[in-house]
Each structure stands twice: as C-alpha cells, then as structure tokens.
Design a protein around this nucleic acid. Structure first.
Lengths: 152, 152
DNA sequence: TCTGAAATTGATGGCTT
DNA sequence: AAGCCATCAATTTCAGA
C-alpha cells in the first residue's frame, strides 16, 4: 500500500489523538469527512493501523516499577526459544519481549507494583519456564520517555 | 482516586479497544451509557487515562529495525544527564529512554528504517549530544511482544 | 475521488429513583 | 451513583459532479 502525504498526516494525528472525531480529523488534514473516513478505514484494513488503545498511567494504577530482564536459555534451538516465547507473551506483566542477536537471548521489559512483586514474579513465573538458564535484571531509576508514537 | 471493579473493567476494555463507542463499552461493563461515560471522564480527568493512540505497524510504514542503545555519559551530574534527556526526548526515533541505576547511564529504544538509517541517526544525532561518552548498540532479531497494555 | 445531503446511530446532560 | 429520556451532534451511506 502506498501512502501519500494526507495519509501521513492522518496517521500523525491519530497517533496523538486516537479518539479524535472524524469531523475534526477531516478538518485537521484538510479533507471533507467522507474521504477522510474512507482513508482511515483503508489504513485499518491494510493493518497499518493495528488498533487503538487507551494509554494508562502505570504508577497511578499501582505499577511503580519497570524492570529490564536479560534472559539466557539453555539452548538456542527452535524448540527452546519458541517455548519460551509462547510462555512469556501470555504473561501480562511482560510488556516487551525481544529476541536478541548478540550476548543474551532475550530482553524483557516487565512492569510490577514494586520490587517485592517483581521478585515474586521472577521466581514464580519467569524462572519456572523450561529452558531458562539465567536472568539478570536492570532497574531504571526514571522513565524519561515512553512513547507509542512512531516517526513519519 | 479509588478504582472499583467496574473502573477496572472499563480500563481493561479501553486498553484493548481505545475507540470503542460509549454505548458498547457500557454494555460490556454492565452499566447504562450515562454512568459509564461519567466514569470514563473521571478516569481521564484523574490522569489515569493519559490519552488515546492509534497503534501503527512499524514495518509497514518502513521502520524495519529496532535498536537498543546503551549510553554512557562523561558525568552523572544533573547538568549532564538533564541536558541529555532534554535532547533525546525531542528525537522522534527514540521511542523509549530509561535512566538506569546500574552499569550504563541510559537505555534507549530507537526505531529506524534500516541499519544504514540507524548508523546515520547515531552519528548525526545521538553521538553529537554533549556529554555522551560511549554508545553500545544491541539489535533484536525479532519483536516477540510489544504491548501498551498494563496488567490490572 | 471528492462533495454534500439524508438517514441512522451515538453522545450528553437534566431529572428521578 | 445509576437509570431513563429527550436533545443535539456525529457517523455513515449514497447519489451526483
């Protein structure tokens, strides 16, 4: 799918204001409501817009801690890594999981209420997944930026 | 602000379907439309709902690469770190920036079109920020999970 | 592909329970 | 606080340019 400059404008606006009304969106991108809506539908159908989400304030709902966990597995074979991925993506505390090319096998970003809650999570969930050899955690002191907005 | 179980249900639904209509949301949480809308407005005003966003598919808009960059600064003093943060949060390619407690000073997650685009970004933007001593990059081979949904 | 009008559907606020 | 109801506004569809 080819995107023109109006599509780009639409995406930029929707990344910032996901619940904007079509009438206002149309005004902002310089289109009348019907073609604007049609473009949005096309972007949704093409999967360029994966979905819409409310963004919550983690500390305000009691999640005061973010942790990065670096995970090493006992082997790099497909069975071991696939099994790990399947388990980990089901854990709602794990908000990111990246299969790495270099040193360690995975980097996870995990949210938790506090350090105790994280320790419990690691012992009861992460550490119990088959094939996990070791876990090293790194704790951010401050979240300087956390954006769902992509540049375009 | 105290959240009851209906507020939790509202937040869970809105995290998944940020553009759901109030009528349908009310049905899903077992409320009639007006009190449902009232609760949503209160959650927004309290800042528990920070906003709404369209989630885009990075590869489909040409961003095929994610990079983790670990950054060390020449000093840990407030001026050096503050300056770095102020510069980095303005760069749209930087989607996450965490000030770390341990080994390195910052972990950034950066999106780019490809490795060439990233290299250029590092040389022209990241590396030029005052106080940056060294940068080590780590490249994920696969994004297994990347969620904006918090557990509750 | 856009525009503009018409019909359907949703948002919203006051009032009652 | 929640439900009901009336009003107002937005979405959505379709004909015509």
């Amino acid at each position: 799918m080819k995107l023109d400059s109006i599509d780009h404008r639409i995406l930029r606006v929707l990344q910032k204001k996901g619940r904007i009304q079509n009438l206002e969106l149309a005004k902002e991108v310089g289109l009348s409501p019907s073609p604007c809506l049609r473009r949005v539908r096309l972007l949704e159908e093409a999967g360029i817009i994966r979905g819409y989400a409310a963004l919550l304030d983690a500390p305000k709902i009691g999640l005061k801690l973010t942790v990065f966990a670096r995970v090493w597995l006992t082997g790099q074979d497909v069975e071991t890594t696939d099994h790990f991925v399947q388990q980990v993506i089901q854990l709602p505390q794990v908000v990111e999981c990246h299969l790495m090319a270099g040193d360690c096998d995975f980097i996870l970003r995990i949210v938790a209420a506090d350090l105790d809650a994280y320790r419990q999570f690691q012992v009861e969930h992460l550490g119990r997944i088959k094939g996990v050899k070791s876990i090293k955690t790194e704790i951010p002191m401050q979240e300087c930026k956390l954006s769902s907005e992509l540049p375009l």
